[in-house]
């Protein structure tokens, strides 16, 4: 009994320490964002944020780039992983290696390479259609170059989640069963493979979005102003609003996570009822 309660105290201590580690900085940030030396507590940083200069523009840009990145990651990776599993299992190690490579390339190195190419390309291809492509990539309303960079950076995360999802189902048998039921390849993918990868797809999408929402280095150096860059930019003039925006961002991320977990759970209870 004594040992049992001892274990309980130990567990409580760990919880407390971990909780303090996460919550104290958050609480301080919240306190800072609502502090007003004259009135005591003031929520102006939160209410004023939505009308602040650049808020909407940076958010819309981030959402657009995020959606495009998710789409590109899935379009690139899903067919590749499925094909490798079905027809060339020996290539799996190679694909894994390629997908995990971005982990060891620092964002700084990546962006240095990208800027060099962007500077060199237009000069070299002046007068050819490739010149227009280089210009189009850097369109400030929709910077394709960011989508490409984020896709690269998201590959390791996406590979892990998608591969785990594929490993959890008997892909070959499901595909063959669907084919024997007169489903063509595209319909097999849409009606059998994708529904059984729902959890993995949602996870991939979420992780990729989280990455895009928090990425600063590449966007800042290439001169774009998505949400993360905007937060840093305003921190000089409006420190409280910058922290408030970070808090909102954190809250939205948590809500997304909860929704994700809830959809997974709701599905399971529905099936067992």
């Amino acid at each position: 009994m004594a040992r049992l309660s001892g274990a309980r105290y130990g567990r409580a201590a760990v919880w407390l320490a971990a909780g303090a580690y996460f919550l104290v900085p958050l609480a301080c940030a919240v306190a800072f964002s609502v502090e007003d030396p004259r009135k005591g507590v003031d929520f102006e940083a939160y209410t004023g944020m939505f009308g602040a200069d650049g808020f909407t523009g940076s958010l819309v840009l981030t959402v657009k780039v995020g959606a495009a990145t998710v789409a590109l990651v899935l379009v690139l990776l899903l067919p590749a992983l499925i094909t490798v599993r079905l027809t060339a299992p020996r290539l799996r190690t190679l694909v894994e290696l390629v997908c995990l490579l971005p982990l060891v390339v620092p964002a700084m190195a990546l962006v240095a390479g990208i800027s060099a190419v962007l500077r060199w390309g237009p000069d070299h291809f002046a007068g050819t259609p490739l010149f227009d492509a280089f210009v189009g990539l850097q369109n400030p309303d929709f910077p394709g170059v960011l989508v490409l960079a984020y896709t690269l950076m998201a590959l390791p995360l996406a590979y892990r989640t998608l591969d785990a999802g594929l490993a959890a189902i008997d892909l070959r048998v499901l595909v063959e069963a669907a084919r024997a039921c007169r489903a063509s390849w595209p319909r097999t993918l849409v009606h059998v493979v994708l529904p059984n990868l729902r959890g993995a797809l949602l996870n991939t999408a979420f992780l990729t979005l989280a990455l895009v929402f928090g990425e600063y280095t590449v966007a800042a150096i290439l001169g774009y102003q998505p949400f993360a860059v905007w937060i840093v930019v305003i921190s000089g003039s409006q420190a409280q609003m910058s922290v408030a925006a970070s808090m909102i961002g954190l809250l939205v991320t948590w809500v997304l996570l909860l929704v994700l977990a809830a959809t997974g759970r709701a599905r399971r209870t529905k099936e067992t009822s």
Binding site: I169, D170, V173, L174, E176, A177, A178, R179, A180, C181, R182, A183, S184, V192, P195, N196
Partner: peptide
């Protein structure tokens, strides 16, 4: 395969989950 007009039952459980 999908135009073969064959029905197949597999060794492992192959129902769509």
């Amino acid at each position: 395969a999908h135009r073969r007009d064959t029905g197949m039952v597999f060794q492992s459980y192959s129902l769509f989950p």
